[in-house]
Design a protein around this nucleic acid. Structure first.
Lengths: 150, 150
DNA sequence: ACAATTTAGTTAGCTATGCTAACTAATCTG
DNA sequence: CAGATTAGTTAGCATAGCTAACTAAATTGT
């Protein structure tokens, strides 16, 4: 039965799973947002900074793409990061483009912030059995694959 | 070995899992945000509305708690929802409290918006095997437990 | 009973983030 | 080298987050 109607059955289940995954992601981040604020750096700035720290230097447009944000938005986010001394702006051969890179202080701030944010999440994880933690690790990979399909 | 040093080993792994889960949640929502905008209702409004639709009527303070937001923030979110005719405000015995409930139109708009948002995610899910989809369902349950521990 | 306190929401004012439209400056193309 | 394209910025708008300070209602303590 399940096999015969697998497409429809899968669609309904898939939709429900998608819905719950979406909701869980929202609530997860909402909880972690509290720790985010301790850094004094806004969430969008923190996220953009992390692209530069972990993904290396790149142009403003590339950063905007990576962050799924419009250029003017990224322009302002970067302005804030520069003002805070967390990002440096360098010239390139192409006079229109800029090369953005995290400063030493930016890298430090980011890692501390990241630590704080993930800390509470990691603590919550320890309440799970070792087996469940392993399972969760595997399932995060699954989630990453789903995201790539988006 | 793993048993003997389970606390430290678990801590390191747990931290990495937490980090990846955090990152996955961010990227998941960033992708879905695009569909969110189609509804014409902001994400905070949509999220608050969904609490009223699926969780039933409640006071402004309760809604603020549910959404992990301060009362003034929720006050403005609700003002927007009222302006759009998606939420009704009723008096209660306690003259200080208000009873907020989704209007028929609010319920309709929410369900349509929710449909749109989850649609792309559900599509990405179908790329997974049936077995993996089941597994992902378990992930969400685990994730929900982790969130409750936060 | 009524003054003081507590509780629920709102208002005001700040910052950060998202957008589009319109601009400047640099590069590329025909 | 004139016109088109590309990279980024500026201006102006809306939403969403916060704290501080306010109003109004209910509760408490004497």
């Amino acid at each position: 039965m399940a096999r015969v109607k697998s497409k429809n059955a899968g669609a309904k289940e898939g939709f429900e799973t998608a819905d719950r995954l979406h909701s869980a992601a929202i609530h997860l981040l909402r909880r972690l947002r509290v720790r985010d604020r301790e850094s004094g750096v806004g969430p969008a700035q923190l996220s953009a900074l992390s692209v530069l720290v972990f993904g290396g230097p790149r142009s403003l447009g590339e950063l905007a793409d990576a962050e799924q944000v419009r250029p003017p938005t990224m322009s302002r986010i970067v302005a804030g990061l520069e003002r805070a001394g967390l990002v440096k702006r360098r010239k390139t051969e192409d006079g229109r483009r800029v090369r953005l890179e995290a400063s030493a202080r930016g890298t430090k701030i980011l890692q501390e912030g990241r630590l704080r944010r993930v800390e509470s999440l990691a603590k919550a994880l320890y309440a799970l059995s070792e087996k469940e933690q392993k399972l969760l690790g595997q399932l995060v990979e699954l989630m990453q694959r789903v995201i790539r399909n988006l």
